[in-house]
Write a protein that binds this DNA or RNA. Structure first.
Lengths: 169, 169
DNA sequence: ATATATTTTCAAATATTATTGAAAATTCAA
DNA sequence: TTGAATTTTCAATAATATTTGAAAATATAT
């Protein structure tokens, strides 16, 4: 397969993949493009290679920067800004985990702990089921939360190797 | 807080949460409603409680069933079908992992392994970066894949406890 | 300071996705 | 069978999300 074809396929699939994870297609495609580019790119490079508008590129790159997945790069003597993506997939993964935990899991846990205080008959089956479901999710979430904290801090090989070792029998 | 208010809040947040994870809002809300309901519900119950159309309820419930998160329940002597959600959050989580792995991760891994065969100069920096990025993602994905397989099979406390034990020092 | 290059913003246009509701299909009791 | 109850389908509509592009803002060279 030719490089140009393989690039197109990778960018396309990464974009489709993103949409299943609440990330918009274009943002994921820009991320893909920057991950496979050896050198930093300008907004114009991205516009041209993905055939999208300047505004679109600008907004999505800023979003990628806010996720900590892309950096601005200033090249000496160049007027334009360049952008480059983190290439280490472990760092990418832990950064995404870190952000989603902060943006989604933490607020959900906060809410759940409030919802467990229900006025009314604790013997009522509806009250019982509600409390049981909510507290189950909260406990599970708290454990996931701890586990993710640990993963974020751990070194790639150390954690995966140790984790897998548990199951080698 | 009153039960009815707490229910509304839970259903609303679970729905919003879902949209960040590629699940449509209504499907997540129906799932939430069924998880906190002590008894199985009919399509009409769901229509009424969430104020949505029959077609919408029907399609989303079938989708939940295909995800293995909801079951049809036949009550003896009743003409209507009833629906009930898995309430054990660990089972819910492993079921979601199982499905997403099958639907998204597995196909992505398959594609990536094809993309590593690039015609052309292996010394070219663009070729090198492409292969390096793709193979990094593939290797990471394969490890995640193994880890998830193990989690799916493991018992709740066993796996979380063992995992956490690793980090207790 | 002025001109020019570059980035950012955001209202309007477009595209995508979700929802409705009524008709068709199915189920089941009599 | 027949007919009422129930479920399913899907074209039309509505709601939501994304994208554009041109104007405004900002940065930089001269």
């Amino acid at each position: 397969m030719k490089l140009s074809e393989a690039k197109q396929q990778f960018i396309g699939s990464w974009g489709a993949f993103g949409t299943h994870w609440g990330i918009n297609r274009t943002m994921a495609q820009i991320h893909a493009l920057l991950m496979i580019s050896a050198d930093p790119l300008t907004q114009d490079d991205v516009m041209e290679q993905l055939d999208i508008s300047r505004g679109n590129v600008n907004m999505n790159i800023r979003e990628l920067i806010s996720w900590g997945l892309v950096d601005r790069v200033i090249l000496p003597g160049e007027r334009k800004e360049y952008f480059s993506a983190e290439k280490d997939i472990w760092k990418v993964a832990t950064q995404i985990i870190r952000e989603r935990k902060k943006r989604e899991l933490d607020p959900m846990m906060k809410l759940l702990s409030q919802l467990e205080d229900i006025d009314g008959d604790k013997k009522d089956k509806d009250v019982k089921q509600f409390i049981s479901t909510v507290s189950g999710i909260r406990k599970f979430g708290n454990q996931a939360d701890k586990m993710l904290d640990v993963m974020i801090k751990a070194d790639e090989n150390w954690i995966l190797n140790n984790f897998l070792k548990l199951f080698k029998k």
